[in-house]
């Protein structure tokens, strides 16, 4: 029995030496170690690309808790990488730079939408109360940080790192990742609050159709009527709600990776999160423009909460009538001059 073991060991050692000779790395190639037949015995063996082509994925078995580690290679990984490194920066760049160019073009051709001077100018009407402004700014502040840190995931290594260097970029990205993961939660809270508080004022109706037909006042002479929110604002509301909910759902899936889906699902989740994210940023750029630089008097609505009655009459005439019917000259409307009773 002992002799048999020795013979087996010698056989194995001999086989190992033969394998080393074939690799040509550890044993120098020499005539004495070359295969005497002159043929490569592994020439016909299955290669990695053949296996991948036939099986579609290469996988094995592992004993660690992470069963996903058994999957070595699959085509979807390369497709996702191609999207992540190839298509996504272009989609993001075109969406965001395209929107910025459109807004610059609009500003320099049409200019600022000016405030009307009427007999109601100077009289203030409460447009958004303190809680509404709070939930708007809670969402907005978080959105700005989420947008900047999100863009860093796509463009940071291309645009920032060459300027600030790899060490500063690594530190910035790490803190950006913390901010992105943690500020997502107050963003989601603000989103839910806005949905609850404002949904009743954002149901589309016939007035919105007329508003769109008149291009929001740019087509034709008369400014189209609107209730509390015009069709453009309703579009922004639903973009924020639907886009925000999709961002929240995909974001939570990425905060808890593989909790609900496999590697392909995670890749799809990341792609959806990124594409909606850049489109979301482009849409909010338009919202920021029209709420600040683009329209005189619009910022006051979210700044102090009170807007000029002449502004409100021009852009939200039906809402003003609703408010006047509710309060007449009560606490809702106040200012330098009393609003004449009708």
């Amino acid at each position: 029995m002992h002799l048999l073991r020795i013979a087996l060991a010698a056989l194995m050692l001999g086989g190992g030496a033969a394998v080393l000779a074939q690799t040509g790395r550890d044993v120098p190639p020499a005539a004495s170690t070359a295969n005497p037949s002159g043929q490569n015995p592994t020439a016909a063996s299955v290669r990695e690309d053949q296996l991948l082509r036939e099986l579609n994925k290469l996988q094995g078995r592992v004993s660690i808790p992470d069963g996903k580690a058994a999957l070595l290679e699959q085509p979807q990984g390369r497709e996702w990488r191609q999207f992540r490194e190839g298509w996504l920066p272009w989609i993001g760049g075109i969406a965001i730079l395209g929107m910025l160019l459109a807004l610059f073009g609009f500003y320099f051709t049409k200019g600022r939408i000016r405030l009307d001077q009427t007999e109601e100018s100077g009289v203030k009407i409460l447009r958004f109360n303190a809680f509404e402004r709070f939930m708007h700014w809670l969402t907005a502040v978080c959105f700005i940080v989420l947008a900047l840190t999100g863009l860093n995931y796509i463009f940071g290594k291309r645009l920032l790192m060459p300027i600030i260097g790899p060490d500063a970029f690594a530190a910035l990205s790490q803190w950006g990742k913390y901010a992105h993961n943690y500020l997502a939660w107050p963003f989601m809270l603000g989103l839910l609050l806005m949905l609850i508080v404002w949904v009743k004022d954002n149901i589309p109706n016939r007035v919105d159709v007329a508003w769109i037909r008149k291009g929001g006042g740019f087509l034709g002479d008369a400014h189209p009527s609107a209730y509390r929110f015009n069709a453009g604002q309703k579009m922004i509301f639903w973009i924020v709600v639907i886009g925000g909910l999709l961002m929240s759902a995909t974001g939570i899936l990425m905060l808890f990776p593989f909790s609900a889906t496999d590697i392909n699902g995670m890749q799809l989740t990341q792609a959806v999160h990124a594409v909606i994210g850049v489109l979301f940023i482009a849409a909010i750029l338009a919202h920021i423009y029209i709420g600040s630089l683009g329209m005189e008097g619009a910022y006051d609505a979210m700044g102090s909460g009170e807007v000029d009655l002449a502004w409100a009459r021009r852009h939200h005439d039906l809402w003003v009538e609703e408010q006047r019917a509710k309060t007449a000259s009560g606490p809702q409307v106040h200012g330098a001059r009393p609003v004449p009773a009708e």
Binding site: F134, W137, L138, A140, V141, C142, Y178, A179, N181, Y182, L183, A184, W185, P186, L189
Partner: peptide, 14 residues
């Protein structure tokens, strides 16, 4: 107030 609330909520989330 919104910035303060966002930071506090983010801390709680962290």
């Amino acid at each position: 107030l919104a910035i303060v609330a966002a930071v506090l909520l983010a801390g709680a989330a962290a």
